[in-house]
Each structure stands twice: as C-alpha cells, then as structure tokens.
Design a protein around this nucleic acid. Structure first.
Length: 590
RNA sequence: GGGGUCGUAGUUCAGUUGGUUAGAACGCAGGCCUGUCACGUCUGAGGUCGCGGGUUCGAGUCCCGUCGGCCCCGCCA
C-alpha cells in the first residue's frame, strides 16, 4: 500500500477545487447535524472544514464513525475538495471558500477531553496552560510564535553566514566566575567538592575564539542566570551572541542594523537604519534610565530649587521632575497612589504640583511648605509647563531620583495612552561609564562586564577618578526595552590587569579565575568586540506577546519551577552520596 | 527578602450583612436535527469553595497561618 501524500489543511483554496486530497490533523471542532457532520480539521498550517454528507458517502458506516469524533482526535481524512455554495462561504476562515467532502476516514488516535479548549482566545489560566504546555502550544497563536521564532533564527543565521561569521558552540558545563549574576552550579562526580557552572553568557569563550583567529563568531546561545524572574526574564534564555576581530563601534552598529533590517520588516515591524544614537549621560538626564522609551514625551529636567524655603529641597543632591500636560485634573486618589509608589521605589517622597489658573494663586500642591512662587516659576519655566499641567518632582540622591521618575514616567505614559500604536524606536545608547560605585559594599563594579575596554583617552582616570572613565560599550534599545548590548573588549593583558585591580580582584584571584584569558592575551590577541541580543525579548516584540513565556516553548513560572515536569525536583539519596552532597535542613533564623 | 493581586464545577466566572439544597455560561454525556462554521434543540451528570487552624449555634464569606499562579521592588556585570 502506498502512503498517501498529505496536504496542509491551511493551504487549500479555490484553485484546489475537484482535487482529491489526504489531510492529517486534529479535530478542532465538530458540528453534528444528524445525517450531516462537519469537522474543522486543524494542523500546523491552519484549519479546513471537512464534511461528512450521507448523500455522498461511499458507505453509511463512514457516517457512524464520523459521529464518534471528538475534540482533539487525530485523523486521516481522504476526500475531494469542493467549492462551497455562495451562501455557505465562511469569510472568517482562510480556507472558507472550499471544504473537503470526505470519502475516507481513519481515526489515528483518540483523545480525552482537553482540560481547556484549544482556541486562540485564551480562557485558561496561565498555570493550567503551563501544566499542559503541549496542549497550549497547539493553540494557533502559540504555534504562530514558534513559526516566527524559527523564521527569525533562520534569517539571523542566513545573514551572519553571508557576512562571514562562523557558528561555534561553547561549553554549557564551564567555570564559575566572580561578578555578575548568581551562577547555576553543577556538582562534579569525579572531582568531589568541585562544581561546574552554567554560563551566564559565552563571553570569555567568544573572546578566546578571537584569539584563536576565527575572526567572526556567532552562536544562538543558551544563557543561565540564577536570579529572580520577571515578565521579561527567565533563568535560562537565549542570546544571539556574536564577536568579531578588528572592529570599531561603527562596524558593530552597521552589522546589527543590517541584522535588524533583515528580521523586523519581513515580520511586519518597520525598521530603518541607521538608528538614532544617544549618549548615556543624555539618556539619564532626559529619561532617568539607560534604556529610554523615546516614543513619547514627559521628559525629565533637572530643576533649580535654590529659591525654595525648604533646606531639605535646597540641599538635595539633585531635584528633577517632569510635566504631565492636562494632568492637573488627576484625582486625589491617583496622586496619592503615585506618591505611595514613589516611596516604594526608594524616593523620600513625591511633590506634585497642579497648575490651574482657576485655583487661588494658580497652583496647588501636596508640599506647599517647601514651595513658593519663585520656585514654582522656576520649575514651570524649566519644564515649559502650560496651565492645566501636573508637575511631578522628586529630590534626593541622583540614582533614586532617576529610578523613581523614570518608572513614573513610563507608567503615566502607558496609562495616559501617550505611546503611539505601531511605532518602533530603535536606539543606540553609547558612552556608558565603565564603572559604577556600589554604596552597600563600598567598591567599584563593572557597568557592563570586566572585559569592556575603557575609552583610551579616559584610561588615566582609572586610578584617580574611576567614575569618569567611559567605556567603549553600547546598548541597542527598542521602545524602552534593552534588546542587547556589547562592547569593544580589552585585548591587552596589562590593561585587563589594571581593570581587575580597580575592581578589587587582586593578581592572585585574577590568575585563579581568569588565568586562561590573561594567558591568551599574551599570545597575540587581536583587538575584538561584539554584542549579544536577547532573542526572547526580540521575539516578544515581534510576536506582540505580553510575556517572554509566550515565545519560549517550555518556560518556568515566576518562582522558577516548571509546572509540567515539576522541576526542580528531589533526587535519590544515592545520587547525592555519589556526588558527596548532603542536604542541610534550613537553619532557623537564616 | 519586601509590596500588590488572584485561587469556588473540566474551564471562565458570579456568590449581598456570616444563615435553607453553592449558581451561570461554555465544555462534557445521551437523544433529535442535511448547510453548519461559537450550529440549533431537549435531557442529564458534574463541587475537598487551594490547604491547615481559629472565631461562631452556623464560615465560600470573618481572623491567623500556609501553598500555588501573575505583576512590581530588591536582584539580574
């Protein structure tokens, strides 16, 4: 018996009329009219209506079998494609002009009633969807996300291959490194008491591949970070990771812009190169964040509070704010909520000022004591605020002021629907500081990572004024989301050692943790640099998904578990014994 | 670690001031139906109100604890 060749259900149309076809797929829905039974048959490509019509069936037994069909049964249907009568055409269905009149039916597998209906309009809660993920992925909108994901990685590989990049795999079992995120550890059986770490990124390996002379490397690389999750963060995620030898920043910008142009427009999102550029300092001043959403206004300004009657305001490290046009009409409850949030975000407080000509004095505020006419005038002038505006002002340390205002700005932008639909602002953020000071443990940390090259002209501030050293680092930002980042790396052993020492990593520790890298740099390391893109976040935007989970086939919950496999799970005690591991009960008070 | 929110039938939800037998829609099972496409129609089954404790004559409802989902802060070079 020869195998019948199968046709994708979603591909059928008028031009297939009168042809005999074989379909294989799932029962999406059944409509039983007695001697007439309709089945919507679904496969990856789409849906086609199959009709079992007593008038046309070769045997009555076939109708009996059609009546047995239930949701999600797996079928093979043979039949003839026929044009539907004009009145019977379904304009909502891609294949709605035709139907398949069945002449043969084989039930390949029966199915229990699924715990939730397989349809686009999600009615099931997310935990149920995650538990039965294989059913969730049957829903066409989810299937579509993975078709998209595959399309994107295909285009990326195609472009990078054409640009002379080699796809190279790097180890998943590797070495724990200081700095950065918490590592996932894997105990070694052979070397009792020692651990591998899963890579936070292939950073060091790709640099070593440059020393190897591969010149252009890329990888669609899984990365692991043992930190708490968010709507756009998973403990394992995928980066498009790349590195090249002898580049400058412009080479990287050009390459990534080319890559985005190859990926976004074919998937319906406009993307024009070259992208706008903004220096880190400007982004922080105008938006209070290093990944500004430039699709809407509400820009921040530093304000002059020198005329304030309040010492607190006058002595604050910085006073910044922004104006919400029309915001003078905000309800008191909403202002209280904003104030509550500001405090939760680490601000000492939030000053709101309503500019309303009909009020006595023309304004009102929750902080009249610290304000006077002169201060209001200064704020208002700087923010160019018209009557009817709401001013939101925060004073304090620069970091908390910026954190608070940038979050409030994003929130109000969303709530007031100031973000234009269909707009996509690609942006390079450049000139990051190389180092940042951490108050809690009183030391400098690498803003990007410890292998980022300082700007040569700033190198000598490294010892005298470390905060002033700028890095040859860049981020690519889309609509306020960091899609990726990278840098030109250090390729000289002496500069790398100076950075380590600035970070408080002494020669001994540097040798222990990164000896292989420092050794490699002694044998002719080319200048090199690269970038990594968050593939999942890119797909989130391309798929217009609300969560990173919708573009990852088998994601974890917010608490890092998998509801389908129930991982993480316990292991047998002899597995632990073999590894020399003993589980301690949680200590009281620890 | 902290804040917010949700948890009631297979699913999505409603459930008043604490009060009789916890409801609806969809789904499911059986019957009828030849042009449906969210088919229609008749009948029926289906509940550990997340879990544990407490208050009370009486708890889905109030209190305490706990578990789980989601969002945010911290964290994520």
């Amino acid at each position: 018996m020869t195998k019948k060749s199968r046709v994708p259900a979603g591909s059928l149309g008028k031009s297939d009329a009168n042809s005999r076809v074989c379909l294989r797929g799932w029962v999406n829905r059944r409509r039983d009219h007695g001697d007439l039974v309709f089945i919507d048959l679904r496969d990856r490509s789409g849906i086609t209506q199959v009709v079992f019509d007593a008038q046309f069936l070769p045997s009555p037994e076939l109708l009996e079998r059609a009546k047995e069909l239930r949701s999600e049964f797996v079928l093979e249907v043979e039949g003839e494609v026929i044009l539907r009568e004009k009145e019977a055409i379904n304009p909502d269905l891609k294949t709605g002009e035709i139907e398949v009149r069945a002449t043969g039916l084989e039930i390949l597998n029966r199915a229990e009633t699924p715990p939730f209906p397989i349809e686009d309009e999600v009615r099931a809660s997310e935990d149920l969807r995650l538990k039965y993920r294989y059913l969730d992925l049957r829903r066409p909108e989810m299937t579509r996300n993975f078709i998209l994901r595959s399309d994107v990685t295909y285009r990326v590989r195609q472009l990078l291959h054409a640009e002379g990049f080699l796809e190279v795999e790097t180890p998943i079992l590797t070495k724990s490194t200081p700095e950065g995120a918490r590592d996932f550890l894997v105990p070694s059986r052979i070397h009792r008491g020692k651990f591998y770490a899963l890579p936070q990124s292939p950073q060091l390996f790709k640099q070593l591949l440059m020393v190897s002379g591969l010149e252009r490397y890329y990888q669609i690389a899984r990365c692991f970070r043992d930190e708490d999750l968010r709507a756009d963060r998973q403990p394992e995620f995928t980066q498009i990771d790349l590195e090249l030898s002898f580049p400058d920043e412009e080479d990287i910008y050009e390459l990534i812009e080319k890559l985005f142009v190859a990926v976004f427009p074919p998937n319906g999102i406009p993307c024009e190169a070259p992208f706008r550029r903004m220096k880190y300092a400007e982004a922080m001043e105008r938006y209070g964040i290093d990944r500004p959403d430039t699709r809407f206004g509400l820009e921040l300004s530093t304000l002059d509070a020198s005329a304030s009657p309040s010492e607190i305001l006058k002595k604050a490290q910085i006073v910044k704010g922004f104006a919400v046009p029309g915001g003078a009409g905000f309800a008191r409850k909403r202002l209280d909520d904003l104030e509550f949030q500001a405090k939760n975000l680490g601000a000492g407080g939030l000053i709101w000022i309503k500019l309303d000509a009909s009020l006595p004095g023309g304004w009102n505020s929750n902080a009249k004591k610290v304000l006077n006419e002169e201060t209001i005038a200064a704020f208002r002038g700087k923010l160019q605020a018209a009557d009817g505006s709401l001013l939101l002002v925060v004073a304090g340390k620069e970091k908390s002021v910026n954190d608070t205002l940038s979050t409030l700005r994003a929130q109000i932008g969303r709530e007031e629907k100031l973000i234009p639909e269909g707009r996509y602002d690609f942006l390079w953020v450049t000139d990051f500081p190389l180092l940042e000071w951490h108050e809690d443990d009183g030391r400098w940390y690498a803003t990007h990572h410890p292998f980022t090259s300082p700007k040569p002209e700033d190198l000598d501030y490294l010892e005298t004024d470390p905060g002033r050293v700028r890095a040859r680092a860049y981020d690519v930002v889309l609509n306020g989301m960091e899609l990726g980042g990278g840098s030109i790396r250090i390729h000289r052993q002496d500069v790398q050692s100076r950075i380590f020492s600035r970070l408080g990593i002494g020669p001994e520790e540097a040798r222990e943790k990164f000896g292989f890298l420092l050794d490699a740099f002694r044998y002719g390391a080319p200048p090199h640099g690269g970038l990594a893109l968050g593939l999942d976040r890119m797909l989130m935007i391309l798929a217009k998904a609300g969560s990173i989970r919708d573009v990852i086939a088998f994601p974890k919950t917010a608490s890092g578990t998998c509801l389908m496999t129930e991982s993480p799970g316990p292991v047998a005690s002899d597995q632990l014994t073999e590894l020399g591991i003993q589980i301690r009960p949680p200590q009281a008070g620890s």
